[in-house]
Amino acid sequence: MKRYNPPSVADHPPFSHAAYRSTVKRSPAFDAILVPQTISEITGPGPAVSALAEDDADLTTNAHTGSAAIGERSILTGRVLDENGAPVAGMLVEIWQADASGRYAHPREKDFPAPRDPNFVGHGACKTDGAGVYRFTTVKPGPYPWGNHDNAWRPAHVHFSVLGPALVTRLVTQMYFPGDPLLSLDPIFHAVPEPARGRLVAAYDHSVTMPNWALGYRFDIVLAGVEETPTEEAGTWRH
């Protein structure tokens, strides 16, 4: 049976990170119980859900209002890979984000006095190709204020969701933009161990930028990979 590498504290934030206030009462207090992976965990919804999904990868037009969204038109592209560098092909990548003013098209948004873009719904989906490549066209989201602390602002970010091949490869993350001065002040970004933070910041890539059209950013996503196949003869097979 396959075994996926479990999440490591070197790669992921802790459940509780006091500077991000709402984690304090929404995090487990007991240590998680370690259990060997079973068929329930090495399978997962990714393959079947992805097979049913359709691409909806241009957020500048998918409001279908007849007008384009306002903002810095941007291409977000990258590869979804596993830890061994193998492409995660044919897998659904879903994103959601604020508009260029920092407003979310969500009914319960805590609003602030910035204009909402009526031509922007702020979410989309794209399936990776055989090389694991996804590609979205969108507008760069604006930073927005939040209630975590005095004068708190989230850096510009795009929320990414990938199911991956197994239950244990589930990943929801946020992609940030290079050079954002708000990154150094953001407790959600800073909850990630310092050596791993850079993986959440997209790279500006001029080879992705399209002349007279859009700026290009590259953001690769790495999911938990299958442990390199030990042979039963070697006696390292865990189950």
């Binding site: 934030p13 319960r108 929320h159 929801v172 993350t173 959440l200 996503i221 790495v222 990979g225």
Partner: peptide, 13 residues
């Protein structure tokens, strides 16, 4: 390669 860190889904998932 190293895993991409997890981040919250936030309130508007």
């Amino acid at each position: 390669l190293k895993q991409t860190p997890s981040q919250t889904v936030g309130p508007y998932y």
